[in-house]
Every structure is written in structure tokens, then in C-alpha cells.
Amino acid sequence: MSLLELDGVTRRFGGLVAVNDVDLVLEEGDVVGLIGPNGAGKTTLFALIAGSLPPSSGSIAFRGAQVGGWSADRAARAGIGRTFQIMRIFKSMTVLENVMVGSYLRETRPARARDLAEQVLETVGLGELAGQAAANLTVASKKRLELARALATQPRLLLLDEVMSGLTPVETSEAVELVRKLNQSGLAVLLVEHVMEVVMPLSQRVVVLDHGVKIAEGTPAEVSRDSAVIEAYLGDQHAAAGG
């Protein structure tokens, strides 16, 4: 039984097919990168797995259970943790309180939930800022906080939505290290990034989406030689240059 198994997953919005017949398998301890140009359907696929959206057809199995169409809180309880692309921290709370919302999922007693949250904050390197108002954090720290909140729910699978975007090169390499460290402790990671350079050194496998269709899958080296992938990205760059 695989950790996560997508079989023929399709999602339509009216006449538009945002995700088209995608298969994907993640095993325990995998780090898989999900890349593709803008509008490729990465965010939609992500939402389908995290339970924010039901699929139009196809099946999504997480540890053997059919999770397609589950609510997001049920998916979180089953062990799927996620971050948000645009940072959406709880503005009225401190850093620690933000993380405790996550740790309460499996620790009902406040003292235990606090311990877990503090531990997670240490892991992501925010231990010193625990008492700060979350709204005052820098962009890089807010991204770490996003990560900490997801980790506090003690997930089996972590979905990271562009956690590296907007970071400086130094911050990016720190974040890459952090994800690697988490993975070494046994956590499976599905990494959505727009920028290929971030995904390549981190992922064992890379899946490429374009116009909702999976156009390539393989090791980072294989994928970056793939002609369909090059074309998709070149087309995107042309479009970007033109726009």
C-alpha cells in the first residue's frame, strides 16, 4: 500500500479541465517535486489532495483510504499537512499560538500541545520568536511559521505550496536544508514550486504538469532533459517575455 495514490484524477471547472487524468504515487519517505508553468493545474491538484476541492472523477487514496472529496479538516486528521502559497498566518495570535492551533489536533491537553508547539518551533528555527506577535514576522519567518503550523499537526505527508518563493538565495538554501532534515526523520513531502532550480536538488522524483496533464515524471536529471518539459517551460518564458 502506497502512502498516496492518485489514479486518473480529473477536475473540471465548468468547461475548463484544470487537472486532467493525473496518476501519481508517493511512498513513505519520498520527496516528490510537482512543477509546471503558470496555470498548469499545480494548485488545483494540491487542493484536491488536501481536501479543499472534490475531484470530478478519479480516485485519491491516502494510506489505503479514499480521501477524494473529504473535507480539509478530515484530511488533516488523516495525516495530510499543508502550507499556503500566500502566507496566511493567524494575525491576532503570537507565533506560539499559531503553532498550537496545529498541535491541538493530536494533543488535547494545553500543556502537551504547548510542548509540542515549542518543539516544532525549535525544529524550524523560530524557537526564539515564540512569544512574538505573528503579524510582525519577516517574510522568511512567516514561511517558517507556515511550515511549523503544518508540522504541528504531525502529518505523514507534507504538502508544501511554493514555500521557497520570495526568499533570498541564502534563505532558500536554509529552507532546502530544513525540508531535507524533515524528510530524513521519515516525513514524505510533495513540493509544489514554480521555479525548477529549487525542486531539483531536493526531489528524488519530479512530476511535470502542463495544461492540467502530466507530461513527464522521473528523476530531476531525466526530467530536465525531457523535450516536452523544455518546450512547456520555454513556451512559458516566451509568454512571460511577451507579456
Partner: peptide, 22 residues
Amino acid sequence: GKAGAYVKAIRDDEDVARAMGV
């Protein structure tokens, strides 16, 4: 306890709260 943290999370951002298992 938990209820207090959860309701404040709901006020701040309902979708994120849900994604965190609330």
C-alpha cells in the same frame, strides 16, 4: 484550551484553520 485556540483561528482565517484539522 483547545476550543479557545480553535475559535480564534476560525476568526482569523477559516480556511487555514480547516486545513490544520479544525
